[in-house]
Nucleic acid binder design. Structure first.
Lengths: 186, 186
DNA sequence: ATTTTGATTGACTAATCAGTCGCAAATATA
DNA sequence: TATATTTGCGACTGATTAGTCAATCAAAAT
């Protein structure tokens, strides 16, 4: 495995377990099986490492969502596929998902440029706009609807992991939540 | 002002601005206008301080919510008053609200006993249960509904502060969101 | 006036931190 | 094979950290 990748993976895990400042760079290097200085060959500073992980994780998620967008004429189905994909990714990449949450509620958020995040949100906003234009969902600000769907997704995620559900129960809950969500915005 | 209170207030501000580990105890003491050792007279460790702030902030919020629960026979009105109160508190105590978010997504969460949190959630769960029993809202697990309402509240909060709305616009948005929420669970 | 008490102080310490640097090893180029 | 370049190393440093503690203070109690 590539050393840079190994550092990112180890750091991700330790950051989620002990927090950003709670994790020493020396510990990351040690656990990743590289020398102290090697870490700084790849990332000039610790901050740069944190931000690099965030971008990497976000790309990972965005890639997954794009690949799993359902190509259908049925708008509801397309929305549903995105809702599903988001939750599927979150549940199968819990560490990465937790990292994103931790990052978003930390002072590090300010260190990232809006453009990076915006470009990943854009496809979703466009999808919602399409739904509004076709009169399939309520005429409300797109980013308001996006905000609601996002937080709903997060809410279900929290609920599911707190319950230690089986795959079947997870499936039912997600299905149920989407129907509620759809009733709300349609 | 009481020194302990002063330390808590200063630490809260600095923690939100620079993160938990990003804030040195010496800086807290300095900015609070007390000696280094005084902080440790009140809180044995830094961790104890963080947890103490969390409990204090949570109590503050819980007190506000209890005081603002509408005493009405109309169930929807009661629910609405709670939704309103939650958002009102969050928007008027942004630092405290941010602290809670940061705490919840940090490894510190594990240091707190469930009982503390559970007791504050209980009134809300009971309220939801009443609604279900009366057949006013859907027959779904109470904590599932609670989870959805909570995340919805958080979503609107995020949306509102990102838009730098006026009081009137805030009012409209909250009103609108509650109607959506009610349509979803009723 | 003297003693007791508890809060407050800030200099201090051992540990830990992010980041550096000169050198060695490995890899690529010729 | 010889040379050049990249990659990796880990001991090192100056700064900072959480937490300690003996000394000081003010005020109350005797």
């Amino acid at each position: 495995m590539d050393k840079k990748e190994k550092i990112i993976d180890t750091a991700l895990k330790l950051f989620v377990e002990n927090g950003f400042h709670g994790t020493a760079t020396s510990k990351i290097a040690q656990e990743a099986g590289v020398a102290n200085g090697t870490l700084f060959n790849y990332f000039k500073t610790k901050d740069e490492l944190v931000v690099a992980i965030y971008i990497s994780v976000k790309e990972d998620m965005a890639d997954f969502l794009i690949k799993n967008i359902k190509d259908s004429d049925n708008f509801k189905d397309v929305m549903k596929s995105q809702f599903w994909a988001s939750l599927f990714w979150a549940l199968n990449n819990q560490m990465k998902f937790k990292f994103i949450q931790q990052f978003h509620t930390s002072p590090y958020v300010d260190k990232i440029e809006q453009e990076v995040t915006q470009s990943q949100v854009l496809p979703h906003l466009k999808l919602i706009q399409t739904g509004i234009d076709k009169g399939l969902i309520k005429k409300l600000p797109v980013d308001f609807i996006y905000s609601i769907i996002s937080s709903q997704t997060f809410g279900v995620y929290q609920y599911i992991i707190s319950k230690q559900f089986t795959k079947v129960q997870q499936h039912e809950t997600v299905e149920q939540t989407f129907e509620l969500l759809w009733d709300m915005i349609k």
